[in-house]
């Protein structure tokens, strides 16, 4: 443990090396967080089955301190979007994301969550969850194998290691704004599109299309 954390330039006396580590705040903070990323227990589609496989004995998520899957977003650190994101579901996904406490991360698992996948052209399909929620790691595949998902987790750990308490968004003075929740109208309404929609409605009918 201490090898991982120790500052390379500060020498710890031989007799204390097993018990003492001299390190930076960022390092120990990131080490603690990346070793206990609790995913939200939530499956969307086919990828969810591979996610469950990843949690079972053959692939064993507990090696990364991730086996504690929490059904409540309040207790979860990581949202694995494991399947096709549909228009009917995206309001719930955004709401769940808003309900998660900081620090929070999102993995877009599989082709559908990353960009719509094979169902992209469908009338009820959102082409990628990143249209609404910020994504940290994309895992390609349809569905990604458990190995690929594990690789995604490794990438997420790398990303956490690069963060610093001085710059992360949840330690800034201004509060983190929640993401506006999409609405289900004649089609999916992204609140960010509302000005553009109003503009269109203000134009004469002939100019539309």
């Amino acid at each position: 443990m201490s090898d991982e954390l120790n500052h390379p330039e500060i020498d710890v006396p031989e007799e204390l090396r097993r018990n003492v580590a001299i390190t930076t705040l960022d390092k120990i903070y990131n080490w603690g967080r990346r070793s206990s990323v609790w995913p939200m227990f939530w499956g969307l589609a086919c990828c969810a089955i591979e996610m469950i496989c990843t949690a079972t004995s053959r692939y064993d998520l507990s090696r990364f301190g991730m086996e504690v899957m929490r059904p409540s977003p309040r207790q979860a650190d990581l949202m694995i979007v494991s399947g096709t994101v549909t228009k009917k579901l995206i309001p719930q996904i955004v709401r769940l994301y808003n309900q998660m406490g900081e620090p929070k991360y999102v993995i877009a698992m599989g082709a559908c969550a990353s960009g719509g996948g094979p169902f992209k052209e469908g009338y009820n399909v959102v082409s990628g969850v990143d249209q609404f929620v910020p994504v940290d790691v994309y895992v390609p595949g349809c569905p990604p194998t458990p190995q690929a998902l594990l690789h995604g987790f490794a990438k997420l750990r790398e990303k956490i290691d690069t963060q610093s308490v001085t710059s992360v968004r949840w330690y800034q003075k201004a509060p983190v704004e929640p993401i506006p929740i999409p609405l289900l109208g004649p089609d999916l309404i992204n609140p960010r599109d509302l000005p553009a929609l109003r503009d269109r409605a203000a134009q004469p009918a002939a100019a539309q299309s």
């Binding site: 009917k88 719930q92 094979p118 169902f119 469908g122 009820n124």
Partner: peptide, 10 residues
């Protein structure tokens, strides 16, 4: 319908 991916239309 939360996973309605328009299989039949596609």
């Amino acid at each position: 319908g939360y996973l309605h991916r328009n299989h039949e239309k596609i």
